[in-house]
Nucleic acid binder design. Sequence first.
DNA 1: TAGATTGTTAATCGATTAACAATC
DNA 2: TAGATTGTTAATCGATTAACAATC
Lengths: 209, 209
Amino acid sequence: MAQKHEASDSAVRRLPRYYRLLQELERNGQNHTSSRELGKRLDMTPSQIRQDLSCFGCHGQQGCGYAVTELRENIERVMGLEQPLSAILIGAGSLGKVVSENVHFEQRGFRLIGIFDIKPELIGKTLAGLAITPMHHLESFCAAHHPAAAVLCLPKESAQAEAEKLVALGVRGIWNFSHCDIVVEQAEVVTVHLDDSLMTLSYKMHNQT
Amino acid sequence: MAQKHEASDSAVRRLPRYYRLLQELERNGQNHTSSRELGKRLDMTPSQIRQDLSCFGCHGQQGCGYAVTELRENIERVMGLEQPLSAILIGAGSLGKVVSENVHFEQRGFRLIGIFDIKPELIGKTLAGLAITPMHHLESFCAAHHPAAAVLCLPKESAQAEAEKLVALGVRGIWNFSHCDIVVEQAEVVTVHLDDSLMTLSYKMHNQT
DNA sequence: TAGATTGTTAATCGATTAACAATC
DNA sequence: TAGATTGTTAATCGATTAACAATC
């Protein structure tokens, strides 16, 4: 069950792709699969699939391959989806709105429990079923509910300072949409630079074969 | 000027980070930098910085380092930002709205020239300064304006079919926000799975030190 | 049993880092 | 000139792939 070797960064980044594919196989009613099939679908070698799965403690059966549902459940467990973490969203502008309404937090290991904004005109409106709360309630809210993570949808000028404040209030993870990099001690930060992948597309198209 | 060796995938993925940092140095009025400084800022070794830049045909000067503006311009050229490509956006729902209004296409090598949606109630409204156009005008629009790229903000059910249609109409690149993978011949596809990075955050937080 | 497929070790490959001569 | 820093080659490291015994 436990992981054999420390999972490499690249393997961790592949986890969501495994997960998505397994969900699809499951929806199609498929009970078993093999490293060969997974490799074909994900454009990877069967060897790599077996290495990855084995290092995450997922095991198949010689001759028969992997049980789809069991494998999907194992990957959920490895990613921590079975113990959802509470999260708050900071910034209820257009970006915060789309994130709160389009991201399936519950299916990704999180539970959104609060949304905050500084603008008075947004207070009281709801987003994703949660009332938008004034920023100055943040401290007491954190003291009461101890959110594990925060989603930052702020202008880049205020993101770093807000991140530091949140960490001081006990937040251990930040999903950062604020168009800037953030550095904090004692917390995991994942920054989403949407634009980066658009530049990558530009590069690829200009170097297209 | 030309690239020495074929640029590795990982180096290409680092290009946007170089670009962002150089823009910042430039804004701060800094004229020169070194692989040492860039490395420190990006948490990379000076060696790697020099390898990357050299393989993109960006050169410095022994003893003095790199000229910031020249380097930024070179990277723009490598990424193709100097020859913007025309793009259309398909799907003007909440996701399409945020993408059209929050992404700086012009600064990322693209020019948004049309927005399409199938819903009658959206037709005529504007987004990012462009009137939303009915989907059945797509074909004649493409014949007239030859957009190079398309941004897909569609439900996942229709994304693959729409992508194929677009490629048949001459589109050579697709920036896909449709929560599904897409496979097409003859076009570059960059798919954005927002959720993936949230799962990565979950993994990291559950394996936090 | 024969065929299929895993789990794991060894071999290969590629990317990162170190080292250093060239030179501003 | 002396100090700094590049560009590039060689060494190292880690990730991917191949191979194959184990076994369902």
